[in-house]
Design a protein around this nucleic acid. Structure first.
Length: 515
RNA sequence: GCGGAAGUAGCUCAGUAGAUAGAGCAUUAGCCUUCCAAGCUAAUGGUCGCGGGUUUGAAUCCCGUCUUCCGCUCCA
């Protein structure tokens, strides 16, 4: 584990050294959990975006993109449940000095009841064998009944308190159910405090006419509220999807682990609207499409896994995460959720506008169900770096740091290097550069020895280096050097463009995805 | 929020009986070089996190403060 943590440290330092990620406002001592992307970071990030965007909008004729504003009508966040549910109620235990979320404590308590119930059921199953009827048993067994009722009562009281935003009642529940701190085993609790995870600001230039608005905590709502605009103007028929890439903001209590958890982050979301009842089929389908999208990058299939949610959010009837093996464990980089018609229904309720689709195939109007695929761009960025970072041992005591990025994602595609600083070589190199630069991001470098320049390109993940030497002048040949193998080939200048573009284009990934 | 550690050049660090702030790497310029870093010469770069105090004199001692990292906690 220590070793793994060191990898993250090295990666952070590498990111800064080579212009991928800088801490925000560094000259002012930084700003917590905010980062800036540097010249190479933005290149990598943009390529990830393009891969995602094209995979959605080019490969699927029934998916279109939008770009909605960060500021939205405040009622949207009431309808989505964020104003009420997206705030954490926290309580501290004075003895152990540990802080807990109220809902976690309550859930633990509910789980205790569940365990008691299932234990009884298990016992009874053994006893009655095949004749056992679970439903009948739960209706009759007094001990089980008692626990079911306790559980129901607790749940009802808890949701009621949440709805009323009643901090005192929440605290009282903790006392009434004798919930203790798992560490200190005492119920010496502080007051309940509320942390809203949404950032807010004021809109309006005069003080008496301002309204409080939020910075969006997710991009999805911008899609939902535009659902009918897109459907009507794009003449979309169900099933269809809307994709969006954009910033979202969450006021995390503690944000750590580099760009993995940031207060300002970017999401790539696609909401797919389907006929009610067909959502679980589509859920399965998108699971497969999305995992394929990841694995095509060839960072290692074993680094990904699904984690199906057992406890579902209030709006979902199925949910899974795609997790990637980070230096700090398997962590979510993408969520796939079957969000039912929760969001559209609520917007209908709060706005008073109909959010339905008339399906001429079945001659019926309905509120579509939604399958969401939502990927954290910054997490994706981190996963690509984690999967690419490598310290190769070449010979004894001689290592190179190389980012084995998927070539299509590399910020710089070609390093153009005159073997030595000779006028003719330099001139020829510029000539080749001018030809290639229209299609690929190229970097010209004549400083230092050739080996050192190769290492510099390795460090930022440039897949190809082209060296210009006497051969180039005499026979119109350059040597092309491959990043991962360090192997070289002499090829004619006229083939260059073809060889490079076959491998570094986003198109090459899309082809594989579309197979 | 609690506990621990640390803040000196872009990076990694050295620098205490308290006295003009150092090295390596990196960067820039030049030399040398015909294929995988660490050959030569030079230059740039720091009011030692910030504020206060003690002192003739503070990177160094004292107090405060901020930030970062680790653990707890939390979590997309």
């Amino acid at each position: 584990m220590m070793f793994q943590e060191n990898i993250l440290k090295k990666l952070i330092s590498h990111c800064k050294k080579y212009g991928f990620v800088f801490p925000s406002s560094e000259i002012y001592d930084g700003l917590g959990a905010i980062y800036d992307y540097g010249q190479n970071g933005v290149g990598l990030k943009n390529n990830i975006k393009q891969y995602w965007w094209d995979s959605m909008t080019l490969l699927n004729e029934n998916i279109v993109g939008i770009d909605s504003a960060i500021f939205m009508h405040p009622t949207i966040w009431k309808a989505s449940g964020h104003v009420d549910a997206f705030s954490d109620y926290l309580i501290d235990n004075k003895d152990s000095k540990k802080r807990y979320r109220i809902d976690t404590l309550i859930e633990n308590q509910i789980t205790k009841y569940d365990n008691k119930i299932s234990k009884e059921i298990k016992k009874a199953t053994k006893y009655f064998g095949d004749a056992f009827d679970e439903i009948e048993f739960c209706k009759k067994d007094l001990y089980v009944l008692e626990n079911i009722n306790k559980k129901k009562a607790l749940y009802a009281r808890f949701t009621q308190a949440l709805m009323e935003n009643n901090l005192k009642e929440l605290r009282q529940i903790i006392f009434d159910y004798k919930i203790v701190c798992p560490i200190s085993k005492t119920n010496n609790w502080t007051c309940v405090r509320k942390f809203n995870l949404m950032f807010s600001t004021e809109m309006g230039s005069t003080t008496d006419s301002t309204i409080k608005i939020y910075l969006r905590p997710e991009t999805a709502q911008g899609i939902f509220v535009n659902f009918l605009n897109v459907q009507k103007t794009g003449r979309m028929k169900i099933p269809f999807g809307i994709a969006q890439i954009g910033k979202a903001f969450r006021n995390e209590i503690i944000a750590r682990q580099f760009v993995f958890r940031m207060r300002e982050f970017e999401q790539m979301e696609m909401q797919f609207f389907v006929r009610p009842g067909e959502e679980l089929e589509w859920f399965e389908k998108w699971k497969q499409v999305r995992i394929k999208w990841h694995k095509i990058l060839e960072l290692g299939d074993n680094k990904y896994r699904f984690r199906d949610h057992i406890k579902l959010a209030h709006y979902a009837n199925a949910a899974t995460d795609i997790e990637f093996e980070m230096p700090f464990g398997f962590k979510e980089i993408e969520g796939i959720h079957s969000r039912t018609n929760f969001d559209l229904n609520n917007h209908e309720k709060y706005s008073g506008k109909r959010m339905q689709f008339f399906d001429s195939k079945i001659n019926k109007s309905y509120t579509p169900f939604v399958i969401e695929t939502s990927i954290g761009l910054d997490r994706m960025f981190l996963s690509v770096l984690v999967g690419s970072y490598s310290e190769d041992v070449l010979r004894e005591g001689n290592t190179r740091v190389v980012l084995k990025l998927p070539p299509a994602l590399s910020p710089v595609k070609v390093g153009i290097l005159p073997l030595i600083k000779k006028e003719e070589f330099k001139k020829k190199a510029r000539e080749i550069m001018n030809k290639l630069k229209l299609n690929f991001c190229c970097q010209y470098d004549e400083k230092d020895s050739i080996g050192k320049r190769y290492r510099r390109q390795d460090a930022i993940g440039t897949p190809y280096c082209i060296t210009i030497d006497q051969n180039t002048l005499d026979y119109h040949q350059v040597s092309i050097r491959f990043r991962d193998t360090m192997r070289q080939e002499h090829i004619s200048i006229s083939c260059l463009e073809q060889i490079i573009s076959d491998n570094v284009s986003i198109k090459s990934l899309l082809k594989k995805l579309d197979e």
